[in-house]
């Protein structure tokens, strides 16, 4: 079981690292948002699953207080999955409306939409 936890942590850390690197690899704020939001959300999910598995194993061994670890981590997981894309959307919309132009665009349907 311990290897499952290591595996989950490993995948999580890899995607978190990717999210950090994406901030430096991409040319403008919108593409950076792509990398940062997706990778950190996905990486976080795996790290939380690892922590939940750890808590569940300890709970099964009879330490009832670790149920709190599992339930609280589950709460954080749900929160992150709901708030992260919403925040990304808010940033993207604000950036577009404040006049920061996306670079390298091949098509922009939003400009003609009267926004």
């Amino acid at each position: 079981m311990i290897w499952a936890i290591y595996l989950l942590f490993g995948i999580g850390l890899a995607f978190q690292a990717l999210g950090s690197v994406a901030l430096h690899r991409f040319p403008d704020a919108y593409t950076r948002l792509h990398g940062a939001t997706k990778c950190t959300t996905f990486g976080s999910i795996f790290i939380y699953l690892g922590v939940m598995l750890y808590g569940a194993i300890l709970f099964m061994e009879g330490q009832t207080s670790y149920a709190g670890l599992v339930s609280h981590t589950f709460l954080v997981l749900v929160l992150i999955m709901v708030t992260n894309p919403t925040g990304a959307h808010a940033i993207a919309r604000a950036a577009y409306r404040s006049g920061i132009k996306p670079k390298l665009l091949v098509v922009d349907e939003l400009r003609g939409a009267g926004k």
Binding site: V106, V107, L110
Partner: peptide
């Protein structure tokens, strides 16, 4: 599809191949 998305972004981070646009 989230897993697919992350592998896709990983590919774009490594190779830098992007062709962005805003579609309706």
């Amino acid at each position: 599809s989230m897993a697919k998305a992350n592998l896709d972004v990983a590919y774009r981070v490594v190779t830098g191949k992007i062709r962005p646009g805003i579609v309706k």
